[in-house]
């Protein structure tokens, strides 16, 4: 069980897909203008990551190496389409906001990267830990980024039509926070924060995990 927990934790700390591995950034920067969008994007990614991790891991003995990528892509694309249809049916307003970024989860490197590096080589139990850990790590970062951007960039956070918190009306929200430069600046601070936090927690050097995670995970 302790192995399960340590695999799960890696996605949140030393192998965080966004702030450490820095994969899947395009979608993150694009949809993090609204807390609501980021929240459901996070849920969608957790679902797709975990479900595809389970399937890839379950099929790892019967899928030949040479055709593994097409098989992974089909599995991932199927789960993404399920999310896409469900969201269109039950959360149309969120779907309008996320738009093309939901189908684009298929090509999000986090999911294919983890299938390739982890799930294809590990038992289902650990693949679930990795999928959940990576998904939650992704969600925490994107939700935090979106909360900061929405709060300071538009003066309030609105979730499914309800105003959660907001500044009084004298606050003149600077537009730059909602635009791409704002995303990069805030994200930069979050990366710095993660590095500092990982160092303080005595994690192994961030530098090595950044470059070696995929090969290392793949061959271990």
């Amino acid at each position: 069980m302790s192995e399960w927990i340590s695999v799960f934790k890696r996605g949140l700390s030393i192998d965080n897909p966004l702030t450490v591995l820095m994969i899947g950034l395009c979608a993150t920067l694009a949809v993090s203008t609204k807390f609501e969008g980021a929240f459901f994007m996070g849920l969608a990614v957790i679902f797709v990551l975990t479900m595809s991790a389970i399937l890839v891991s379950a099929l790892r003995h019967v899928v030949p190496e040479k055709v593994r990528i097409p098989v992974f892509i089909v599995i991932i694309a199927s789960f993404v389409t399920v999310v896409d249809l469900m969201m269109k049916a039950f959360l149309p307003t969120v779907y309008d906001f996320l738009g093309v970024w939901i189908p684009l989860i298929v090509v999000n490197c986090i999911i294919l990267g983890r299938a390739e590096a982890f799930s294809y080589h590990k038992p289902i139990r650990l693949a679930i830990a990795d999928g959940l850990g990576m998904g939650v790590g992704f969600s925490v970062v994107i939700i935090l980024l979106a909360s900061i951007r929405e709060l300071f960039g538009s003066g309030e956070i609105v979730f499914l039509g309800t105003r959660l918190i907001g500044f009084p009306s004298w606050y003149q929200a600077p537009n730059i926070i909602l635009l791409f430069p704002g995303a990069f600046i805030i994200f930069g601070f979050m990366v710095a924060g993660t590095i500092a936090l990982n160092r303080r927690m005595g994690a192994r050097k961030v530098q090595t995990s950044q470059h070696c995670t995929i090969e290392e995970g793949g061959r271990s």
């Binding site: 003995h61 019967v62 899928v63 030949p64 040479k66 055709v67 097409p70 098989v71 089909v74 599995i75």
Partner: peptide, 19 residues
């Protein structure tokens, strides 16, 4: 099954079944 040295039949099967 040896996944590194699969025959082409096995590969086709794997992809077709998944799809």
């Amino acid at each position: 099954m040896d996944r590194a040295n699969a025959t082409s039949g096995q590969m086709v099967m794997a992809v077709v079944l998944t799809c």
